[in-house]
Design a protein around this nucleic acid. Structure first.
Length: 533
RNA sequence: CGCGGGGUAGAGCAGUUGGCAGCUCGCCAGGCCCAUAACCUGGAGGUCGUGGGUUCAAGUCCCACCCCCGCAACCA
């Protein structure tokens, strides 16, 4: 199985902040989850540089546009690297490969007869980078999203994309593939948009008015509108227009991860564009001739910072690299997806991070590992207790612990949740699930009291402790996508090498008994030191 | 009739197909002592925004209404 996942490409008029980090980390988690499961995974992120916003930002900084773009793209790429984001490729829309892809795509759409020239006079909102029809304006004839911004009255001849011709096909797509857009509330939202307002798009600007953008093939007097070129990045990164074999390998994307603000472009315009181009490009067709559309688009929510909207003037925009100095970045990743239902809006609250860190991570997970390792070392000569791996023996029937079968069930749930991008539910199950979970593992200690049991029944004590240690090993792999560093630390504390991930099949990795009875346990280290000490 | 989100225990949140209202934190009481003053048990605390309706049964479906949040720029 192959898995191709993308983040949106980010505007480079500023450096990454906590919001773009959230999106990127979400994609990273899903990519890691698929990699761990043996899927051939390709994770793409990058920068959207053909925007007038870049030009303005470059001017403001007093730098030459190219210099500015190069610097900013490097900042984005390096930020993700420093945070340990496991992207496989970083696409810039100023790259040659992207221009080639756009060129090919445009020509295919043109050949389909879906590009036409028209002269018109309309209001253009610089804030939205979009034209506004009269019905989209507020009472004062201003952009409802940017009421303080003067609208430009634009009169020019542009190329248009005949999006309206695909209205029915798009609605049919939504109908046939209920999972095309997640979560479902976004599908409802976009469906009503397509039904009521999916009009033809202007997809070019007069070159003399914009100082950036890809030239329209065959017409140097026009530049391609930024959204039309931007979406194509998902194809150009996997060889469209430059490497057919590569493209066939990866396209279509399995998941476009986007913020809720840009679903219109991804869920409606993008499929329409592909439908059009596919008519005249066999590379974009399935065997039956239907267009190769992305499998799914997942729209996540936004969050406020301590209850307030993130904004520069309020000074609450958070630099992820700074934040990573305050808390271990894995803890931030955990917080994002434990605290906020994936797809919902949420609130970024430091007190809650500290709470989650102390309670869920330190007290529940860290302490469990620590007490299990300590007891094993103390009672079993510094080793993993020597038990028979015969599953018959692994019955701790006088406790509420669900045993091996329950761990297998938990794995099934976790796999399913990662597959459906419900990272929040996966974590919930690992911590609070029934049958086997971190909470129940801690309860098992209370129920069996190995620290007393050791004097009466060493054999059973060995079983209990092995169960705890082996469960920690399982949990380490369950949380690996969310907390890769912590996961590796746990594996190491259990005396194993985290790199076995590269030589071991996933099915073996998650099989009960992966921890070798009688193997050495290194001296435990505190996994989550108390904050502020 | 601009767009969108939301109103569930003190706080923060879950609640797919309608079927005795859950989770985490906090609080109170108790237990335990292996462990990061950590762990476990029990308890108090909610008329699920309001009013109607459908149903044997609604937080969950339908209608109306009230209230809160975001929407200059930055911006996932």
């Amino acid at each position: 199985m192959k898995y191709y996942i993308t983040t949106p490409i980010y505007y480079v008029n500023d450096k990454p902040h906590i919001g773009s980090t959230y999106t990127t980390v979400a994609a990273d988690i899903l990519a890691r989850a698929h990699r761990l499961r043996g899927d051939n995974t390709f994770f793409l992120t990058g920068t959207d540089e053909n925007s007038q916003k870049s030009v303005v930002a470059a001017e403001k900084s007093g730098k030459n546009l190219d210099v500015y773009l190069n610097e900013m793209a490097a900042i984005w790429e390096n930020t993700w690297k420093e945070l340990g984001v496991s992207f496989d490729d970083f696409i810039r829309t100023t790259e040659e490969r992207h221009h080639k892809a756009v060129d090919r795509f445009w020509k295919a759409v043109e050949k389909s007869g879906d590009i036409y020239k028209d002269t018109y006079e309309r209001h253009y909102c610089v804030g939205c980078e979009d034209f506004k029809t009269d019905s989209e304006l507020n009472k004062d004839d201003r952009c409802p999203l940017h009421p303080n911004k003067d609208l430009d009255l634009v009169q020019e001849e542009n190329y248009f994309f005949k999006a309206s011709a695909y209205k029915d096909d798009i609605l049919q797509l939504f109908h046939n593939h209920q999972n095309f857009i997640q979560p479902p509330k976004r599908l409802n939202e976009i469906r009503s948009y397509v039904k009521n307002g999916f009009a033809d798009f202007s997809i070019s600007r007069e070159a003399k008015k914009v100082t950036c953008g890809i030239p329209v093939p065959g017409d140097d007097s026009q530049r391609i509108y930024v959204w039309f070129d931007a979406l194509i990045n998902y194809m150009s990164a996997v060889g469209y227009g430059t490497d057919d074999e590569l493209f066939k390998k990866w396209w279509p994307a399995n998941l476009h991860l986007v913020g809720k603000d840009i679903i219109k472009f991804h869920c409606a315009l993008w499929p329409a564009m592909i439908m059009s181009a596919a008519k005249n490009d066999p590379l974009l067709q399935n065997d039956d001739g239907s267009p190769k559309l992305p499998e799914q688009i997942f729209a996540h929510g936004f969050f406020t910072i301590e209850g307030q909207k993130m904004s520069k003037s309020l000074g609450n925009v958070i630099d992820p690299l700074e934040l990573a100095k305050e808390y271990p970045f894995d803890a931030i990743r955990y917080f994002f997806f434990r605290e906020i239902g994936f797809g919902n809006d949420g609130n970024f609250d430091r007190a809650r991070i500290a709470e989650r860190y102390q309670s869920d991570l330190a007290n529940t997970l860290g302490n469990l590992l620590n007490r299990a390792v300590n007891m094993s070392r103390k009672y079993f000569d510094g080793k993993v207790p020597l038990v028979s791996l015969d599953s018959q023996i692994h019955k701790l029937s006088d406790s509420s612990w669900g045993d091996v079968e329950a761990v297998e069930t938990l794995w099934q749930q976790v796999d399913e949740y990662y597959k459906t991008a419900r990272i929040d539910l996966a974590l919930e199950a690992i911590w609070n699930g029934e049958g086997a979970s971190l909470i129940l593992a801690n309860r098992l200690v209370e129920e069996t009291k190995p620290f007393k049991l050791i004097k009466e029944d060493p054999e059973k004590t060995a079983l209990v402790l092995y169960t705890l240690l082996e469960f920690c090993r399982n949990v380490a792999w369950m949380i690996e996508p969310v907390m890769p560093k912590i996961s590796a630390d746990i594996i190491k504390q259990l005396g194993q090498n985290p790199n076995i991930i590269h030589q071991t099949k996933f099915t073996d990795l998650k099989k009960w008994g992966g921890l070798e009875p009688g193997s050495d346990l290194p001296e435990p280290k505190i996994l989550f030191p108390r904050l502020g000490e």
